[in-house]
Design a protein around this nucleic acid. Structure first.
Lengths: 141, 141
DNA sequence: AGCAGACATGGAGGTGCCTTCTTGCGCAGG
DNA sequence: CCTGCGCAAGAAGGCACCTCCATGTCTGCT
């Protein structure tokens, strides 16, 4: 993260920089779908489940703007627009896949941690148990 | 991405799963700061530039819930609360760093792509130039 | 007694992302 | 002639996240 010093800022962190551009709801999905090659708008729309036409347009625009995908119009009728990853876009897939692997590998650990955490608070919803200090559980400081 | 098939869903994609938990504004920053070891709440607050007390609390709660950080209360006076990455949290650092490296390496390419894109639309803000088709630029389909 | 230092929580308000609906265009085909 | 397909863009509304401000607790200092 490069900040060996005392502070980290929002834009000091390169990761946040990426996430600010590609961390939205759909960009990663679109990039993932385009992994296997070029695809036209309507097929993209079908491949990314649940995306609306508008959001697909906007997402693609953002990706195109940052040089991650190319847009190619074939003026047939009806017009055909193909999108494909650029080299830059493909290179993004590496760190993305690393993240995906991490996620799949650690999903069980996360889920069980979450379960434990949620269970720990439900029984004693009381903010201050009569017993004593409790170094974990009720978090009144 | 695992979806060789025709569709990708929001929760089919492990990456989105991670981002839904840790893709918010502060989590990554907090994890990054905790990289070098345990830190108490107030120091964390000072280290993550711009974060409010409330958001730091909420962010840490989320990370704790998912088993990425531990919370340790030392009941001195005034009370002292230390946060540290768990093994799981540290393991997340690897893919995160990969992303950071990608970001730093490709920032120039992205910025110049963006600049080019923005320049290409400013001159002819006209939605339909009288000339003709224009396979790139004005995007009326 | 009163205040400050360390941590957590609550409410009110803003802003931006996302969703849905609607409009536009250009041409082929019934 | 009117309707359909494929793509894009606009307006309006909802919701989740984030921000600021205020309150609460416990103890030791002045």
């Amino acid at each position: 993260m490069s900040a060996r010093h005392t502070k980290i800022t929002d834009d000091d962190c390169p990761v946040r920089e990426v996430l600010n551009r590609v961390g939205d709801k759909w960009s990663i999905l679109v990039v993932a779908v385009l992994r296997d090659g070029s695809m036209r708008f309507s097929d993209l729309r079908r491949s990314v489940d649940g995306i609306s036409q508008r959001m697909l347009t906007l997402t693609l625009r953002g990706l195109e703007r940052d040089g991650l995908v190319t847009r190619t119009v074939t003026p047939t009728t009806p017009p055909r627009v193909d999108y494909a990853l650029t080299r830059l876009g493909r290179s993004l897939l590496d760190p993305i896949m690393a993240l995906a692997e991490w996620a799949e590998k650690n999903r069980p650990a996360i889920l069980s941690a979450r379960w434990r955490f949620d269970e720990a608070d439900r029984p004693r919803a009381n903010p201050s148990p009569p017993g004593g200090k409790s170094a974990r559980g009720a978090r009144g400081a």
